[in-house]
Write a protein that binds this DNA or RNA. Structure first.
Length: 572
RNA sequence: UGACCCAUGGUGUAAAGGUAGCACGAGUGAUUUUGGUUCACUCGGUCUAGGUUCGAAUCCUGGUGGGUCAACCA
């Protein structure tokens, strides 16, 4: 008996990642009554990148999978670094990726009053105190990981004095840096984060949401867990570097007496030939190494979007790379595989010649124009067909012709035949060169009228098939050819004295003018994010840039096609 | 001379004490009016040394290697 696989069953038996295992165990044992509620908590101090996409897909994916909810919460506790520009871009990017926080948009700054009251609770329990030491003194007395710290002499202040001082901090009586509120935990703890961490600092800074209402701001550690708790988050998922913060996270929840979310840490995403540090990405933008956050070479979501990536391809990428606790570096070629896979099925084909050389078909009637029919997408019949004009003079790629070709060269060469896709088989008869430079100016060919594509006698086999564009009808377009931003696999892995900027790829952007078949002007009104996305046959996937106008077309190369000929050439 | 976390093919990720599997990659071949796609086959792995067990990638101990932590950043 043959068993037919049940797709439902298959879905259920798919192996779980360690976070899903924890969640399912919690559901099984009735923790939170089986409720699942996650959150994505970015600080609005930069643009989101592909690493955030992993976190977004994880958090929203879990919410969806377990019929729970996912909040979007801005972790906006440091006004000097944050801006509404970033808030807006983050919301746009999350939406574009296909996720919906519905009515659950929150800000840590919404909880400032509540957090203040939590701090007062700790003071009253003698678990927090106002410390007058300078930042330097605090740092010096914190000790080192191997040596215990020293207790602050302000540690023994009375509850009343602490309450008074803390309220005056809030009232703006003290200058920045003069005092902080600290937790009273253990200056000898092996965990540095438990050595009387700072809870509040004085910052006379304008906040993008609360304005000048506050001049004291909670630290991350004092805001994050409590915000999770207020929002009844069940599983607070973050990256590995917060692992050592978890005891503190739990300490605040316990001491204040709040609902306790469970913090789970996973390994952040790294991708070869790029960087993820917000600070460094900001540097590249500020110092003009790239043209803005959405430069198509950037690993930012808006950069990938402008490059031509689809949300589907990024979601698929995030789902496929998996989630675990060990450090990982994903090969950028896997990201490229994900977008090729998507665009292969969904993007219409077009012929475009990026490095044109003229081919003149001597035995073709001078003024004749034929309409050649060709399919828009061989992977999807429903995409229909289009017409390409064919005439006596056409362009082919300069790389598709060699005067003295090696054995495995299946393209045009003197005396050899090739198929012009969707048109005729031609034979190269002669070449015309510039006498001064030796550069080939024209390739003269003859065509075989019996081999017209689709005709009964057109089935003759030749080694190669070339793409082409008719000279007269060709449409010019600016093509931006993008390559990896860095020449080094891991630009963060540096020798003494080096900078990641030393490894910027000088060839990461090349601009050429291409000749494209006239169908490129036909608006491709399509759904599914495929507008302006094409496969230029035999070359790669291209996406119309926002700079493009009907008079001045601009395309970005998303990714080249796999090229096994390039490999053959290399070996040689 | 600390605490915590991690270790499976080149990369990523599974195997909850019982056949080390999947994807990408690489290679070979077939198909192909894209040197694309698709299909078939192949390559290649449990850090190390002990221990427990009928049986260990999995549990225990010791090593080794990597990561995180000493912002009034998140």
């Amino acid at each position: 008996m043959i068993e037919t696989p049940n797709p439902e069953e298959e879905k259920n038996t798919r192996s779980l990642n360690f976070i899903e295992e924890i969640i399912e165990e919690d559901i099984r044992t009735g923790v939170n009554d089986g409720r699942v509620h996650t959150r994505f908590p970015p600080e609005p101090n930069g643009y989101l990148h592909i690493g955030h996409a992993k976190s977004i897909c994880l958090n929203f994916g879990l919410g969806k999978k377990y019929h729970g909810q996912t909040n979007l919460r801005f972790d906006d506790t440091n006004p000097v670094k944050e801006d509404v520009e970033y808030v807006d871009s983050i919301m746009e990017d999350v939406k574009w990726l296909g996720f919906d926080w519905e009515d659950r948009l929150y800000y840590a700054s919404d909880y400032f009053e509540q957090l203040y009251e939590y701090a007062v609770i700790l003071i009253r329990k003698e678990k927090a105190y106002v410390c007058d030491m300078t930042a330097e003194e605090i740092s010096e007395t914190r000790g080192t990981p191997t040596r215990p710290g020293k207790e602050s002499h302000f540690r023994t202040r009375s509850v009343d004095e602490n309450i008074d001082l803390f309220s005056r901090m809030r009232a703006g009586e003290f200058p920045d840096g003069s005092r902080v509120l600290r937790a009273k935990i253990d200056m000898a703890s092996p965990n540095m984060h438990m050595r009387d961490p700072v809870l509040y600092r004085i910052l006379h800074a304008h906040h993008h949401r609360t304005g000048d209402q506050w001049c004291i701001y909670p630290m991350y550690d004092f805001a994050h867990g409590q915000s999770d708790s207020i929002e009844q988050i069940t599983h607070s998922i973050c990256t590995l570097e917060f692992e050592v913060h978890r005891p503190l996270y739990d300490w605040f929840i316990r001491e204040i007496g709040l609902y306790a979310p469970r913090q789970i840490e996973f390994a952040r995403l790294n991708v070869t030939y790029t960087i993820m540090s917000k600070r460094k990405l900001l540097e590249l933008v500020r110092e003009g190494y790239v043209n803005g956050w959405d430069d198509p070479r950037m690993p930012t979501i808006c950069g990938l979007r402008r490059r031509g990536f689809t949300p589907e391809s990024i979601r698929n990428f995030a789902d496929t790379i998996g989630v675990a606790k060990r450090d990982n570096v994903i090969d950028v070629s896997f990201l490229e595989y994900c977008i090729r896979e998507d665009l292969n099925k969904r993007a219409n084909r077009l012929m475009a010649v990026l490095n044109p050389v003229k081919v003149i078909i001597d035995n073709y009637p001078d003024d004749q124009v034929e309409e050649m029919e060709t399919v828009n997408n061989p992977e999807d019949e429903s995409k229909g067909k289009r017409i390409m004009p064919f005439s006596k003079t056409i362009f082919i790629e300069r790389e598709d012709f060699m005067e003295d070709p090696p054995n495995k060269f299946f393209r045009l060469a003197p005396g050899r035949e090739v198929r012009l896709k969707a048109a005729y088989i031609i034979r190269c008869e002669s070449v015309v060169k510039d006498p001064a430079t030796g550069e080939i100016k024209e390739i003269h060919c003859t065509y075989d009228p019996l081999t017209k594509s689709g005709m009964p006698e057109s089935n003759r086999k030749v080694k190669g098939t070339l793409h082409w564009v008719s000279e007269k009808q060709a449409v010019k377009a600016e093509i931006r050819l993008y390559d990896r931003l860095f020449t080094k696999e891991n630009p963060d892995d540096l020798e003494e004295g080096e900078s990641y900027k030393d490894y910027l790829n000088p060839g990461s952007l090349k601009i050429v003018t291409a000749m494209i078949e006239p169908a490129v002007l036909t608006p491709q009104v399509e759904t599914g994010g495929m507008t302006g996305k094409f496969q230029f046959e035999r070359i790669g996937y291209f996406s119309m840039d926002k700079d493009s106008t009907p008079e001045n077309l601009v395309f970005n190369r998303v990714v080249p096609l796999k090229d096994s000929w390039a490999k053959v050439e290399k070996v040689k």
